[in-house]
Amino acid sequence: MFLNQFLLFAAVLFCIGIYGVLARKNGVLVLMSIELILNSVNINLVAFGAYNQDLAGQVFALFIIAVAAAEVGVGLAIVLLIYRNRRSIDVAKANLLKG
């Protein structure tokens, strides 16, 4: 098995996630795309861990999974707050700071 097949798979998922973050207006969908990006990074870490036969890759993948869980909790709380204040989670309409 080539190392590259895993790295390229992760790169494709990463770019699809980037597209999702940039193109979506719904706040929950943006959060889902961020999960996709974090997962693709995890594939890279685990693949390099297997390549070097080193546990560090998997350990840091586990750390990222925990951080992602915290991130989605806080992110959803913020999205809910925006919904409660503005009756919409359209991120294009959250432009109070726009000059």
Partner: peptide
């Protein structure tokens, strides 16, 4: 890739917890 523990954690945390959280987010908004 032979990373069984990461796979099991992925299923528990992402498919279990994060998915439910996101679906709750969909419902609450």
């Amino acid at each position: 890739l032979g990373a069984e523990f990461a796979a099991v954690t992925q299923v528990l945390v992402y498919l279990g917890a994060v998915m439910v959280l996101l679906l709750f987010g969909v419902m609450l908004t």
